[in-house]
Each structure stands twice: as C-alpha cells, then as structure tokens.
Design a protein around this nucleic acid. Structure first.
Length: 128
DNA sequence: CTTTTGACAGCGT
DNA sequence: CACGCTGCCAAAA
C-alpha cells in the first residue's frame, strides 16, 4: 500500500461526521481502490489524530483492544449500539451530494498518478 | 520468487 | 448469536 493510499484513507476518515460510521469495505469502495484489508492496514498506521472509532468492521466491531477504547466515543456520539457493538445499518454514513463530491475528488487524487494500467477495477462481490 | 501476515468479508454450521 | 473456513489483496519477511 502506497503512502498516498494511506493518506487518502486518513483524509476520508476525517470527513465522517460524528455519530456516523463507515466500514473498511465502504471506504475501499469510496476510494475505488484497494479492499477492506488495505484500508485496515492504512488505519493501523494512522497517528490517532483522526476519528478512528468511526471506521469499523462490517459487523460493527473492532479488534478487542480498540473496541474498548472506542466504546466511550460511540456512547458520547450517540452512535446506535446493540450488544456492545455498532449497529452498522443504522449508523452507516450516507454522504450527501456535497460530501460525495469531496470524497470523489479525494479518490481521484489516488487513481491518477501515472496510471499505466488500471483498466480492470478489482471487484470483490460487495456493493453499497 | 514463495510464504506469511493482517484494524477484513461472507457464508455455512 | 458465535465460531470456523475460505476467499481476498497488498506489504513485509
């Protein structure tokens, strides 16, 4: 994963409004590049200066240690929970047109640099 | 170059 | 609802 990919993930994460969340897969799809694991790798390298607790697994959980630190934030932001984990369907951020434009712009900064052959966007049987 | 690894996802049991 | 397996993809070993 390139450094700019990680940067894009981090920047995108900062656009998630308080009270909402996105899954790793969502972010990968919004960026139009990489997959859930790539996003996870990028998050692992984040400096903590971003709302990392709003980026979670598709099932609304996070690795144990992180989840413990995230819960207070979830409560603070009134993110819908159930059985201690986030109810993703209810909490998932739905970007409005304005936000969408920004994210799209953000994504374009990635897939552009000297694209030699980025013809076949990797599909991985998941849609939003 | 091959193998292992990891802030993942989906499906079956 | 909780595990366990399998598929995935790129980076690191």
């Amino acid at each position: 994963m390139s450094a700019d990919y990680a940067l894009a993930v981090h920047r995108l994460a900062r656009h998630i409004p308080a009270g909402s969340v996105l899954t790793y897969g969502d972010i990968a799809e919004l960026l139009g590049l990489g997959g859930p694991r790539q996003v996870g790798a990028a998050m692992a390298r984040s400096d903590g200066a971003l709302p990392w607790w709003r980026v979670l697994r598709a099932d609304g959980t996070l690795p144990a240690d992180l989840q413990a630190r995230a819960t207070p934030h979830w409560v603070e932001e009134s993110i819908p929970l159930r059985h201690g984990r986030v109810r993703v369907p209810a909490a998932r951020w739905q970007p409005d047109e304005e936000a969408f434009a920004i994210l799209d712009e953000l994504a374009s900064t990635l897939a552009s640099p000297v694209v030699v052959e980025e013809t076949a966007p990797k599909r991985r049987g998941r849609m939003l």
